[in-house]
Nucleic acid binder design. Structure first.
Length: 306
DNA sequence: AAGACGAAAGTGGTTGA
DNA sequence: TCAACAACTTTCGTCTT
C-alpha cells in the first residue's frame, strides 16, 4: 500500500485550521499563515514504476488520469486564438471553420444527460471532499463508486447530490477515514436521514463490503482534534484492545467507546482534556463518555488518581 | 466558576411477533 | 404494522476542585 501523507495540522503552530487555496495550489494555516504545502495539485503520474524498464515502458505524455473528471481528464480543446500552429493569423474562412469546430467539439465533450449528470456529480464529490478535508484517494474511491452506481442505473428517483454524498460516505469507510453521517451531511445540502437512506440503499444494491468501524479508527481523529501526544494515542488504543478482548464494546457506539478511552488516556498521561471537550469532538454527550468511562475503569481495573 | 457525577425522562432506530 | 427494547441524549440538581 502506498502511504499518503495526510496533513491535518499546521507544522508550525499546531493549529488544525488549514485552508486550501486551490488558486495558488497551497495548503495554508489559517492561524499563523504558514504555507505547509505548495504542491496541492498532483502533477505526478497515476502509475508506479518498480524498475527502470517499467518506467521506460509506461512513460507517456499528458496530465495524470483521474476518475474525478467526467472524461477522466482525457480532453482536448481547440484553441480560441485565431492562429495556426506557426502562430500565423488564420484567414477569415479558416477562422469561421475553427469557430464551428470549437462549438461542436465543446458540445460533444459533455454529451447527453448521462455525461452531464456525471460531470455534475463529480464536481459535487470534489466539493464535498474539500469541505471534509479528505485525502485524494478517498475522492478517487468515491468517484469510482459513483460511476458504478450510474452504470447500474441506480440513481433513478434519487437526487444526484444524495447519491454522491452516500458514495463519499462509503468511500470514507472503505479508506478507514472516519467521517460521521452528520459530517458528510453537513458538507452537502442533504439531511442526515436521507443520507442514511441513500447509504443503506447503495450498500444493498452494490456488492461492496464495508468494514464496520471499530472504535480504534476514531482515536487518531480525536487525538488530532484535541492536539494530544502519540503516547496518549497508543494508550487509548491499548485500552480499546483490552476492552474489545473483554467484549465490553459489543452493542456500544464506537464513537463513545473511543471517546472514553481517549479521555482515560489523556488523564493517565497528564494531558487532561475535559469530558466536555472530548464529547464535542466525538459528537457524543458527556454522559455517554461518563458511562463508558465508568465501565472501562471498573472492568479493566484502571486506577485513576487526580 | 468550572468540571464531574448521576438520576430521570425523552428520542430515534432496530427487532420480533 | 406495532409495541418492546437498548443505546444514547437532554436536562437538571448536587458534589468537588
Amino acid at each position: 500500500m502506498e502511504q499518503r501523507e495526510i496533513i491535518t495540522r499546521c507544522t508550525e503552530c499546531g493549529s488544525i485550521d488549514l485552508i486550501r487555496d486551490y488558486e495558488a495550489g497551497e495548503l495554508v494555516c489559517e492561524h499563523c499563515g504558514f504555507v505547509i504545502s505548495s504542491t496541492l495539485l498532483d502533477h505526478g503520474p497515476e502509475w508506479r514504476a518498480f524498475d527502470a524498464e517499467q518506467r521506460q515502458k509506461r512513460t507517456r505524455v499528458g496530465a495524470p488520469l483521474t476518475w474525478t473528471i467526467h472524461d477522466k481528464g482525457l480532453s482536448t480543446v481547440i484553441d480560441w486564438r485565431g492562429r495556426d500552429i506557426y502562430g500565423r493569423k488564420l484567414k477569415p474562412m479558416q477562422s469561421a471553420w475553427a469557430y464551428r469546430m470549437r462549438k461542436w467539439h465543446r458540445r460533444s465533450k459533455v454529451s447527453g444527460a448521462t455525461d452531464r449528470n456525471l460531470a455534475f456529480a463529480l464536481s459535487e464529490l470534489t466539493k464535498i471532499s474539500y469541505k471534509l478535508n479528505l485525502p485524494k484517494n478517498v475522492l478517487e474511491t468515491a468517484s469510482v463508486l459513483y460511476r458504478r452506481v450510474v452504470r447500474q442505473r441506480l440513481i433513478r428517483g434519487r437526487s444526484i447530490q444524495g447519491v454522491a454524498a452516500a458514495s463519499m460516505y462509503i468511500a470514507c469507510r472503505q479508506c478507514s477515514i472516519i467521517r460521521t453521517l452528520e459530517e458528510v451531511a453537513s458538507a452537502t445540502h442533504i439531511s442526515k436521514k436521507e443520507l442514511g437512506r441513500n447509504y443503506r440503499f447503495l450498500l444493498r444494491k452494490i456488492k461492496t463490503k464495508v468494514p464496520p468501524v471499530g472504535p480504534q479508527s476514531y482515536v487518531s481523529k480525536f487525538v488530532n482534534h484535541l492536539i494530544l501526544s502519540g503516547d496518549t494515542e497508543s494508550i487509548a488504543l491499548k485500552i480499546l484492545d483490552l476492552a474489545i478482548e473483554m467484549r465490553l464494546t459489543s452493542g456500544r457506539g464506537p464513537a463513545g467507546m473511543a471517546a472514553a478511552a481517549t479521555y482515560i488516556a489523556s488523564v493517565l498521561t497528564g494531558e487532561r482534556r475535559t469530558q466536555g471537550e472530548i464529547a464535542r469532538s466525538a459528537q457524543v454527550t458527556e454522559v455517554t463518555i461518563r458511562n463508558r468511562y465508568k465501565e472501562l475503569t471498573q472492568k479493566l481495573n484502571i486506577k485513576i488518581d487526580i
